[in-house]
Amino acid sequence: MTRQSSGDRIELVYGSLDMLILRTLRWGPTHGHAIAKSIERMSEEALKVEHGSLYPALQRLQQEGWITAEWGVSKNKQRAKYYRLTAAGRRQLVAETSRWERFVRAITGVLRPAESEEGQ
């Protein structure tokens, strides 16, 4: 989703940002900035999200009905929009996650065939 990859940051695979957002929201409603920070923390700063690219994704997820949004006030009295996972979003997260895991397994299998053979 991000345009540039620089240094040691890994460019996000298209579509994986959606999954990361949904995953972040699993622990409760939060605002855009916190989502961005959370994704970076989860990946131990390896995945750097260009914060701007988060917002189109949030709009898209809202349209799909996977998240809802409402205005609230943050810890430091800042008005911010809070996003909440819906039931549909929860189901989507499960589906996305398993798809993602299949994808990762497949890539791992391609990249390290010998090891996976040994594993069997």
């Binding site: 605002h31 855009g32 900035h33 961005a36 914060h51 917002y55 709009q59 809202q62 349209q63 009905g65 205005w71 943050s74 430091n76 800042q78 008005r79 911010a80 929009k81």
Partner: peptide, 27 residues
Amino acid sequence: AKLGALFRRPKPVDDLKEEIRAHLAME
């Protein structure tokens, strides 16, 4: 959702500016 957005006011995009401003302030 897009069809709905054509007729609804305020539009979801209208408060995007404010949301981004909040984001920048937090950062």
